[in-house]
Amino acid sequence: MEETKAVKTVVSGMRPTGRLHLGNYWGALRNWVELQDKYRCFFFIADWHALTTAEDTVGLRDNTRLLVVDWLTAGLDPEKCVIFRQSDVKEHAELALLMGMMTPISWLLRNPTFKDQLQELYKARYKGQEDKMRKAEGVTKALAEAHGHEADDMALHSDMATYGFLGYPVLQAADIALYGAEFVPVGRDQLPHLELSREIVRRFNRAAGKPVLTEPEPLLTSSPMVPGLDGRKMSKSYGNAIELGEDPKSAEAKIKKMFTDPKKIKADDPGHPEGCVVCAFHRIYNPDWKVREEECRAGKVGCGTCKKQLFELMAPSLSDFKARREPFERDPALADRILAAGAVKAKAAAAELMAGVNSALRIK
Rank of each mutant, 00 (worst) to 15 (best):
L35A: 10
E2D: 14
L29P: 04
W26T: 00
L22N: 01
N24K: 11
L35G: 09
P16I: 08
S12K: 00
V10E: 06
M14P: 00
D37P: 11
W26G: 00
L20N: 01
T17I: 05
E34N: 12
A28L: 08
K8E: 15
K5L: 14
L29S: 03
Y39S: 09
R15D: 10
S12Q: 05
W26N: 03
L29H: 05
L35R: 11
A28W: 01
Y25R: 06
N31Q: 15
A6P: 03
H21R: 06
P16W: 08
E34M: 13
Y25W: 12
S12T: 15
K8Q: 14
G27R: 05
L29W: 06
V10Q: 06
T17W: 13
N24P: 08
S12A: 14
K5R: 13
K38P: 02
N24R: 07
D37H: 15
Q36P: 13
H21F: 06
R30E: 13
L35I: 14
K8P: 00
Y39L: 13
V33S: 04
G13Q: 10
L35N: 11
V11Q: 00
G18R: 10
R30C: 02
V10G: 05
G23Y: 01
Q36I: 02
V10M: 07
Q36Y: 03
K38I: 00
L29R: 04
M14S: 09
A6D: 15
K8M: 04
V11H: 00
Y39K: 07
M14F: 13
R30Y: 03
M1N: 11
K5V: 03
G23P: 11
K38V: 04
W26R: 02
V11T: 14
R19L: 01
R19H: 13
A28I: 01
M1L: 12
Y25S: 02
V7Q: 12
Q36G: 09
G13Y: 07
V33W: 03
K38C: 04
E2M: 12
S12E: 05
R30T: 01
T17F: 06
H21N: 09
V33L: 06
V33K: 03
E2T: 13
E3H: 10
Q36T: 09
G27C: 07
D37I: 03
G23V: 05
T17V: 08
L35K: 11
M14H: 11
T17N: 12
L29F: 11
A28T: 00
Y39D: 11
A6K: 15
S12I: 02
N24T: 04
V7E: 02
T4M: 06
V7D: 04
G27A: 09
M14I: 14
M1D: 05
W32C: 04
V11A: 06
L20V: 14
R19A: 12
L20G: 12
R30M: 12
E3V: 13
R30S: 11
L22G: 00
R15E: 08
N24D: 14
A28Y: 02
T4V: 13
G23T: 09
S12D: 08
W32N: 01
W26K: 02
Q36W: 02
Y39H: 13
N24A: 06
